[in-house]
Nucleic acid binder design. Structure first.
Lengths: 326, 326
DNA sequence: ATGAAAGCGCTAACAC
DNA sequence: GTGTTAGCGCTTTCAT
C-alpha cells in the first residue's frame, strides 16, 4: 500500500502539499492538484485513517451498544444508525451488552482505546455512572441514562395509554397488562400509561411482569389465560405480544374474537405475525436516524438545539384487535 | 489521557520497558513491573490501540457485511460473530450492503483504510472480483463468493430436499415452491433440493420466484393460493413462509389443516409465529461463530484445517405441518 | 503556494 | 534487564 510519501515523490511535491490536497485546506495550485491527483490515481493511494486518527485525534467509528441485536427492536434502530453514519463518513461498531453493566463498561473502555468518536447506547438499568464521565459524546436511545445525556425516545407513557384505550374502546373488560421488567425506564413508563388508561374505569385488570423474551411471555401468558376470563392483553413489546398470541393459540383461544392483543414497538415482527399485530408503533428508523445525527453533531462540536427528542408513538390498528369497534 | 511517556516518567523507567510490560515480551524485572503497574494504575493509563495499530500494522476490527441486518436471518449470525470476536479481543463493524455491489466495494475500501483486520461477508450475487484480490483475510457465510474464499454454510440443497419431503410425507399433492431470487446461491440450491424431492413423484408442483421480503411473499402467495388447490408450500426462507401464512389467513385458508407450510432458516421469527413454523433450521449461531473463529485464525496467520465448513440443516417440525402424518 | 520538520502514541531493533 | 531511537503515515505550524 502506497503512503503519502510515495505520492509526494511521484508527484514531485512535498508531503505537506499532498496533505493539503487531501484535506482541501490551505492554498494549492491547480498544477499541483493535477499532478497529485494523477499520482494518487496511479499508485491507487488511499490515506491511512489510522495515521490520520493518531495525528488529529479524530475518529470515525461510532459505538452502538444494545442489549441484544437479536431482539427485533434493535436491528431496525441499528440499520437507521448505520445509514446516517454512512452518509457522514462514520462506521458503526456493534456491541451486545446483554444488559450487563460489566459488558457495557468493557465496551466503553476498549472502544475508547480504539478511538471511537462517540457512543449511541440503549442502556440497561440506569444506575450508570460509567456513562456520565466519559470524555467523548454519547446519546441515549429508548432508555434514559442520565439527565446530562441527550436522548431520543418516544413518549412511552402516552403510547401505552393510547394502546390500552384502544382495548377499552373495543370493549375489553378483563385486561392483562404484560409489563416489562420493573426498573427499566420504558417498561415502567408504559405501565404508567396503562394505569392512566384504566384508572377509574369499571374494568378488571391484572398485571404481570415479564422479561422481554418470547418464551417467558408465552409461559406467563398461558398461565394467566388458563385461569380466567382475560379478554384483552396490553403487552409491553411486540415480542411479548407474540408470546401471548402463541399462548392463546395453544389454548384454543381465538384472536381477536375472544382475546384482543395490542403490542408495543411496531417492529417488523408485528406486521409479520398472523394475524398481524395491532401495536403502538415507535418510529424506530427515525429514532435511530435522529440519534445518529445528534451524535455526529456532538462529535463535530456543533450545538444541539434539543437535547431530548420525543418521537410520537402511533397506534397501528391491525388484526389482533377488532376494528368493528371503531 | 495519559500516554506511555507519562507512565514511563512516573515509573522512572523508559518507554521501552513500559512497552515490554504492556506486551509481556522481553525481560523485565519484578521491580519494574511493580512500579509500572502502579504508575498505570495511578494515571489510569490505557494504551492507544490506534498508535499501536499504526506501529504494528495490526488491527482489531472485523468488518461484517450483510445485506440488511433487519432481515431476521442476520442478527443471529451477527450476534454469534460478535460473541466470538469479543472473546478474542476483536470488535465488529456492521455494514449493510443492501445487496449492492457498490456498497460492498465502498465498505471494503473505507474499512481497509481504517485498518480492519478482516471481513466476514454474506455477499450479494457472486460476480465478485472485488473480494478476491483483497490483501486481508475474508470468509464467506451463507453464500459462496469464490472458490478461493473460505466459507461456512449449510447444505441448502439437502436441507430443502428434507423439508420438501416432509410435505410429501404429510400427504401434500399440490405443492407451491416459493423460491428465492434466482442467481442467489442458497436460493438456487434450495430450489434444486426441492426438485430432487419431487422428481418422479406423482404430485403437482408450482414454482414462483420471490425476493426475500415479507410483503412480496404475501402478495405472491395470495395470488397463487387464490387460484387453486395448493395444499403445501415450501418456502425458501422463514420470512417468505411468514408472508405465505399471512396470505393464507387472509384468504381463510387454515394452516396446517388445509395448507401446510415449511420455511427455511430457523430464525427466531419461525418460532415466534403462530402457529409456529415448521422450518429447515440452520444453526445460525454456529455458522456465525465458526466463521468468526475461522477469520480470526486467518488474521492471526494460522492454517485452516478446513476451508469449507458445512453445517447440517435440521428439520424442525412445529405447527404449520401436520404431525399426525409421522 | 510550497516545503521542512516536529509530533501524534506506540513498537522494536539495537546498544549497553 | 533496560534505555535510545528510529520509524509507522499522517497533519500542521512555521518558514520561505
Amino acid at each position: 500500500m502506497a503512503n503519502i510519501r510515495d505520492v509526494a515523490k511521484k508527484a514531485g511535491v512535498s508531503v505537506a502539499t499532498v496533505s493539503r490536497y487531501l484535506n482541501n485546506k490551505g492554498y494549492i495550485s491547480e498544477d499541483a492538484k493535477r499532478v497529485i491527483s494523477a499520482a494518487i490515481e496511479e499508485l491507487n493511494y488511499r490515506p491511512s485513517l489510522v495515521a490520520r486518527s493518531l495525528s488529529t485525534k479524530q475518529a470515525t467509528f461510532i459505538g452502538l451498544i444494545v442489549p441484544d441485536i437479536v431482539n427485533p427492536f434493535f436491528p431496525e434502530l441499528a440499520r437507521a444508525i448505520e445509514d446516517v453514519a454512512l452518509t457522514y463518513g462514520y462506521t458503526v461498531v456493534l456491541c451486545n451488552s446483554d444488559e450487563k453493566v460489566e459488558k457495557e463498561i468493557h465496551y466503553l473502555n476498549t472502544l475508547q482505546q480504539k478511538y471511537v468518536a462517540g457512543f449511541i447506547v440503549a442502556a440497561s438499568h440506569s444506575e450508570a455512572d460509567h456513562y456520565t464521565n466519559l470524555d467523548i459524546p454519547i446519546v441515549a436511545i429508548d432508555r434514559r441514562i442520565h439527565p446530562s445525556i441527550p436522548i431520543v425516545a418516544t413518549d412511552n407513557r402516552e403510547g401505552a395509554r393510547v394502546g390500552t384505550e384502544h382495548l377499552l374502546a373495543n370493549g375489553c373488560q378483563h385486561i392483562l397488562c404484560l409489563r416489562g421488567p420493573s426498573g427499566l425506564g420504558p417498561a415502567d413508563d408504559r405501565f404508567l400509561g396503562f394505569k392512566d388508561a384504566v384508572k377509574g374505569k369499571e374494568i378488571e385488570t391484572q398485571v404481570v411482569e415479564c422479561p422481554f423474551h418470547f418464551e417467558a411471555s408465552e409461559m406467563i401468558a398461558r398461565t394467566v389465560l388458563q385461569q380466567g376470563s382475560i379478554d384483552g392483553i396490553f403487552a409491553s413489546s411486540d415480542v411479548l405480544a407474540a408470546g401471548a398470541m402463541k399462548a392463546a393459540y395453544s389454548l384454543g383461544i381465538g384472536v381477536p374474537d375472544q382475546l384482543q392483543i395490542v403490542g408495543y414497538d411496531g417492529t417488523m415482527l408485528a406486521s409479520q405475525l398472523t394475524p398481524s399485530l395491532t401495536t403502538v408503533a415507535q418510529d424506530l428508523y427515525k429514532i435511530g436516524a435522529l440519534a445518529a445525527r445528534m451524535l455526529i453533531k456532538l462529535i463535530e462540536g456543533q450545538e444541539l438545539t434539543e437535547r431530548e427528542i420525543q418521537i410520537p408513538a402511533e397506534l397501528l390498528i391491525r388484526e389482533t384487535t377488532r376494528s368493528e369497534a371503531l
